[in-house]
Amino acid sequence: MMANRHLAWGLLLPALLWTLAFFAAPLVIMGMYSLWQRVGMKLVQTWTTHNYQQFASKSFLFESLVNSLEVTATVTIISILLAYPLAYILAERVPARWQRLALVMAILPFWTSYVVRSYSWLLVLSEGGILSNFLMDIGLIAEPMSFANNRGATVVGFVHFFVMLLTLTIYASLVQLPPSYRKAAADLGAGPVRSFIHVVLPLTLPGVMVGAFLTFVLCIGDYITPQILGGNQELLLPQTIMMQISRRSDFPMASALAMILMAVVSLAYLACARWLKLDRL
């Protein structure tokens, strides 16, 4: 076995080098950039916390983080509230042989392209779109109106995606729950509501938390959905980052904002770590 150890390292090396060169090193370089500064069009390579100070003092930068946190929290809560009943009904009320088909159907739209999914919501929400048309037909509004280009549209676009995701993770933890637990609760005199609150809900919490964490991470880092659906009233953090890159070519500032985004995600991970046994999946 000892002679094989070199061989094992040799087999591991390509993957390891790739990850180090194209993942770890770029993050380190980005961290360094965030401590540099762009003055005029030049990059000044002396350590400074200038970018982070700018973030704290310039309201539009800091506000984009607040906006992101608000939108992400709203999306996560609404998605859980919509997905839990759906997962519960699928797991408990739908005959077992139909469950698989029902789940596949629920995540079918997931396979539309990521960019196209937000565009599709634009078709529904824009002025003269399906929703506006429908509301005019039933007489609720008199003129065509737009429901896109605001925070609500961004939230709808996000919720659409994350309801599918959360339904999957919650369904997975519901079907793992042995029916005997609920029977035991019933035998001990608990009604359906008490048995749900004291038995089912706590035991499916890990599924909810895994889904909620994924929702948080994917939602707060997403650029497309707010860019297509959100309009230009307010910016979310990824939009601010992209603006630093594409309009201003300010890589140090963009790097600092990206580091802040990473820090927020890490905090979220630490907060949910006790529920997230990702290696168990």
């Binding site: 993050l27 370089i29 980005m30 991470v217 980052i241 890159i245 990473m262």
Partner: peptide, 8 residues
Amino acid sequence: SYLIIGMG
């Protein structure tokens, strides 16, 4: 996030 990987 992919955004951060891409930026790096």
